[in-house]
Design a protein around this nucleic acid. Structure first.
Lengths: 231, 231
DNA sequence: CCATTGCGTCAATCCTGTTGACATAAGGCG
DNA sequence: CGCCTTATGTCAACAGGATTGACGCAATGG
């Protein structure tokens, strides 16, 4: 039933276990569930039992699972950028923006994985774009160039963060299997056929780690090298 | 049953409807299904009926759904890299790899949305990693450094390509709405509150375009700057 | 203090993926 | 040429998901 969710709520009735449900409480509980028991713990049954209500009660507050996920994503965006103030060093500031975005995504990987590529056009996003482009303008880039370079930078950050979140959102078994692959599969290859892989063999297990910071640093190096006013 | 999948296949028996199953045919059909009806259309029942076989027959070829997804991912990689031969110029070669990967993802945007970010551990992926790391070794990087830098590079390429594919996989309406947002929402902002956005205003509509090539070029610039042997 | 109705509950429905048992035909071997 | 083994397609069943229609209790306005 998709017309089940009312605009405002006046009457509220405690569940069998005495809890007063609300959109806020549900989102908070969902985030706690994900944090404690991993991304796969978020489903209506488990959420219902964590809240002490029937699973179907959630449909009084959200049209469905996806609606709930979007509500969660909205909370994450607000939290991630809260209180950020750009400093004098534009490179360091862009770096902090990148780390904050990633941290926000990784704090709630499953929600991030589902909502990562959606454009919000809302206050927080607009403010972030303003800040980022402002930083590149302060580095002396021409406006058109600043806009294009900001886009390349933030897209790299967002897509990397989304990739990391997507990986974290996998069920534990698959995550560990992907991880082990670099040890098991890639280690035992024919040296004659795969000389490069053989040469870097000791490094292969670390291929399972995130390259986020290395990528951001490379990107920032390139931007700094192109900047008219230096750093 | 996870030991159900044999190494090689000699005997083959037609299904009730006369089709001869094979790993290749299954992957091809899965790609077609996803391309036609979206990623959520990929499930064993539907795939079975598209192939003209019982759903459980698929478990003779793949350990489970995830295994199938990895095979699909590897197919996309294979198609994208087919016939690629690295040239003398390592920067140009990495650039072509990047463009090929992106083209491969964009050729199957909906499947890419499903299978990006995974380690396939299969032939095509292994070959691609071998090639990429080989290029960085040829640039004079130490093995450990080459491996880490390749990871940063390919992760950037893959996550960017995945983001582009995800955007392409959106329904037309949503894609166009996102596109218009940069014109409509961002153009009409208060200049006093958003000075940077106002300064780059003419450039805003182009923010809807992909930044893939710009990002790859920045990344390659940084790599070239760090390379011991130059370009 | 009663009537209204919002909302929590229940049970049923329809999806998934996965597997153990079964059946049958392909292909090697005598 | 025919038999035997066994690979492999089929069937039926199970577990566990999302979702919803009907129901009835209790919070609230009058």
């Amino acid at each position: 039933m998709s017309t089940r969710v009312p605009q405002e709520r006046r009457r509220r009735r405690p569940t069998r276990s005495g809890v007063l449900l609300s959109e806020d409480l549900i989102v908070t509980t969902a985030l706690r569930l994900i944090g404690e028991h991993g991304p796969e713990a978020l489903n209506v049954r488990r959420l219902g039992s964590a809240l002490g209500c029937d699973p179907s009660a959630l449909y009084r507050y959200f049209h469905g699972t996806d609606d709930l996920v979007l509500a969660i994503a909205d909370r994450i965006i607000g939290d991630a950028m809260a209180g950020f103030v750009p400093g004098d060093d534009w490179v360091a500031s862009l770096r902090e923006m990148a780390l904050r975005v990633r941290a926000g995504y990784l704090a709630h990987p499953r929600a991030a994985a589902l909502a990562a590529h959606r454009v919000t056009r809302r206050g927080n996003e607009i403010q972030a774009v303003e800040t980022g482009i402002g930083l590149l303008l302060s580095a002396g880039f021409e406006p058109a160039r600043a806009a294009r370079l900001y886009l390349a930078f933030i897209d790299t950050v967002l897509s990397h963060a989304a990739a990391d979140a997507a990986f974290e959102a996998l069920p534990r078994q698959r995550r560990e299997a992907d991880h082990r692959a670099w040890r098991n599969v890639y280690q035992g290859l024919d040296p004659a056929r795969y000389p490069a892989l053989t040469a870097v063999r000791p490094e292969l297990p670390s291929m399972a780690d995130s390259s986020f910071e290395e990528a951001v640093d490379l990107m920032l190096e390139a931007l700094a090298a192109r900047a008219p006013d230096g750093r």
